[in-house]
């Protein structure tokens, strides 16, 4: 194997890793905002499934990718609103409510798919655009600077979310409400309104993640995400509730995934071991979480409903 070829393979793997990281990154960034406000949403995966289906179905019917993303957004908003009403207004336990949202999304997307589509048919995929000049850099250019718009958006969201959390009054309210809601309340910050906003942001981002997943693949099948949303939640812990950390986790996950796929294709991993190798990213996440356990501290009010007395 010539050196040139190896470099090409590595670059292709990196490009594919970045593409695979996209849905994880978008969903995990959204969940970061939600968790910083003190709300854990275990329903991310369900929201992704359902929004992925509606994005798929819309594109299937209209051939319009933008309408597909908008359909996913609408699903995210509705699911977010339901989750916010249940957990913020009615103070329901977040863990169980989130599992409910997950199961609803999983089941309803399956049902809708069976009734409305039946057999999987491919749709238009997201197109890749090279960034002028940068994508012309040999080897590195195509790997780093030739992606679809949602991938660019995902990585652009990292500094944006970090900046919103640090430098805006909204971000400050979110942090305060997630650490000490009583204090925020005593200063006239509406805990409920802040958490509603954070939940809606989290859910719409989960929805966009679902759309990104299905529009990158160009096809839908029941249980499309295969637990991707849960990994995204783990990445929030992995990234210690910081957008840059979350990005690191998503990239690591995407790259390990891409490497396993690449090695499988090249036959480096024998066919018989391919299922075990497919677990590698998940095992890696668990190891990382165990190593990190106790070193980072979650928002103090995470999972705790707020009442005044």
């Amino acid at each position: 194997m010539s050196e040139f070829l190896t470099l090409t393979v590595i670059m292709a793997t990196i490009a594919s890793g970045i593409r695979l990281a996209t849905p994880y990154l978008i969903a995990a960034l959204g969940e970061t905002v939600g968790q910083r406000s003190g709300v854990l949403n275990l329903g991310v995966d369900g929201v992704m499934q359902l929004s992925a289906f509606f994005a798929y179905w819309t594109v299937l019917e209209t051939q319009n990718l933008i309408l597909g993303v908008l359909a996913a957004l609408a699903v995210g908003l509705i699911m977010g609103l339901i989750y916010a009403v249940v957990t913020v207004s009615f103070h329901a336990t977040q863990g169980i409510s989130g599992i409910g949202i997950f199961l609803f999304g999983l089941g309803f997307s399956d049902l809708m798919f069976q009734r409305q589509v039946g057999t999987p048919r491919p749709i238009k995929q997201l197109q890749e655009y090279g960034i002028p000049f940068l994508s012309d850099i040999p080897q590195v250019g195509p790997a780093l600077f030739e992606h679809n718009l949602l991938t660019y958006a995902a990585f652009l969201m990292v500094p944006i979310v970090a900046w919103v959390m640090r430098s805006t009054t909204f971000g400050m309210n979110v942090r305060a409400v997630g650490e000490n809601p009583q204090a925020a309340d005593s200063l006239g910050v509406s805990v409920a309104r802040t958490r509603y906003a954070a939940i809606l942001i989290g859910n719409t981002m989960a929805a966009i993640a679902g759309a990104a997943l299905v529009l990158q693949l160009g096809i839908f099948q029941p249980n499309l995400t295969q637990g991707l949303g849960f990994i995204a939640i783990a990445l929030v812990y992995f990234g210690a509730w910081r957008p840059v950390g979350v990005m690191g986790g998503a990239l690591l996950y995407g790259l390990v995934n891409a490497t396993v796929l690449q090695w499988k294709a090249q036959g480096i991993i024998p066919r018989s071991a391919s299922d075990i190798a497919a677990m590698a990213p998940a095992v890696l996440t668990i190891i990382a979480l165990v190593v990190l356990a106790g070193r980072v501290r979650p928002p103090s009010a995470l999972t705790r409903p707020f009442t005044r007395h």
Binding site: M172, Q182, A183, A184
Partner: peptide, 16 residues
């Protein structure tokens, strides 16, 4: 105390 320990004094004062 109604303070957010992870935030600075100025952030705590500015809250709300």
């Amino acid at each position: 105390f109604m303070l957010v320990p992870t935030m600075t004094v100025a952030e705590n004062v500015a809250l709300g």
